[in-house]
């Protein structure tokens, strides 16, 4: 927009009203972003291709971005593992419960903190921010979880992560942008604080809620560390922890001189890993399209202050 305002005489060749310098910059940007984008997508394409390719094709290095000797045996194998289903169940459960709980807590925390008249607001915010910068570290956290009796429970997988200060601040800023007058009019109609929050503020904040909900959901879905640290029960591992074990196990197998002969002579271990990765990605990828329309709007959450 700004470009149109300046130096109108120099736009002779610019179809979109950009100076040659800006066009060059745009071209460089597109080029760089394309490369970065490809760097993200191509390894994933390779993984997908491997998951559908035959053992021989993978061993001989023929598989690049498209499946060679298409087969579904790996998927049959992965979905035949009871561990996969156990872990999937755990992951779905903690993602749903964790996201629901986290959204509730975050809204209930952010809303009062968005009220400038709240007594002691500044120190409370300071306390929250403090935890963003400093934490006890892994060992004290572990001891805390143990003394709370949370080790080896499903709770430990989602309760400790239910409040992200970063998300609360985003949400707080978004709430602050909602004109005070709207809330006042609701209160004039007799709405209390809770009613105002549920019926007025939250419906007006859908873009922010969708974005933060997605942050939480992806955070829960992708978290393997919690499962690794706090869960020792094989059937209670989240999917990403299971995946982590499969991948690291496969990396170590040649180094530790596993004395066992090949386990699955028809299937390639790399393909099995690839198929598990693909299957672990699919559920969370399905969520994106539905939240897409809020997403762009939501990313601006709290960024413009009036």
């Amino acid at each position: 927009m700004g470009a149109r305002m300046m130096k109108p005489g120099k736009r002779s060749s610019a179809a979109f009203g950009l100076s040659p310098g800006e066009r060059a910059l745009g071209a460089v940007n597109v080029f760089l972003l394309t490369i970065i984008g490809l760097m993200m997508v191509l390894p994933f394409l390779n993984t997908v291709a491997k998951s559908f390719s035959s053992n021989n094709a993978i061993t001989t290095g023929k598989v690049i971005f498209t499946p060679v000797d298409f087969q579904l045996g790996t998927y049959k194998y992965v979905t035949g593992q009871s561990q996969f289903w156990d872990s999937l169940r755990v992951s779905v459960l903690i993602t749903l419960l964790g996201t629901a709980g986290a959204m509730t807590i975050s809204c209930l925390t952010a809303y009062p903190l968005s009220k400038t008249w709240l007594y002691g607001r500044k120190p409370v915010i300071l306390f929250f921010v403090f935890t963003m910068l400093f934490s006890g570290g892994m060992v004290p956290n572990y001891l805390l979880m143990r003394s709370l009796g949370l080790i080896n429970t499903l709770w430990v997988l989602f309760v400790p992560g239910m409040l992200s200060v970063y998300n609360v601040i985003l949400l707080k800023n978004f709430f602050e942008d909602i004109p005070e007058a709207i809330e006042e009019s609701a209160q004039l109609d007799g709405a209390g604080n809770i009613r105002t929050l549920i019926s007025i503020v939250l419906p007006m904040s859908l873009p922010a809620l969708a974005t933060i909900g997605l942050f939480y959901a992806v955070g829960y879905w992708d978290n393997y560390m919690t499962g690794l640290l706090y869960i020792t029960k094989p059937d209670m591992r989240p999917l990403q922890t299971y995946l982590y074990v499969i991948v690291t196990e496969a990396v170590n197998v040649d180094e530790t001189l596993s004395m066992d002969a090949l386990e699955n002579i028809a299937l390639n271990t790399e393909a099995i890993r690839a198929a598990t990765i693909v299957l672990a990605c699919v559920p969370i990828m399905c969520v994106y399209p539905f939240l897409q329309k809020y997403f762009v709007k939501g990313m601006r959450v709290g960024s413009v202050k009036g």
């Binding site: 561990q83 080896n152 429970t153 094989p234 059937d235 209670m236 074990v245 499969i246």
Partner: peptide, 23 residues
Amino acid sequence: AAFAEEGKTIRMLVGTQSFDMNT
């Protein structure tokens, strides 16, 4: 999870595996 069954069971801790040794 909280009320896992109790009994004369030997509890053994091993390095992580991709499969469930219990089942």
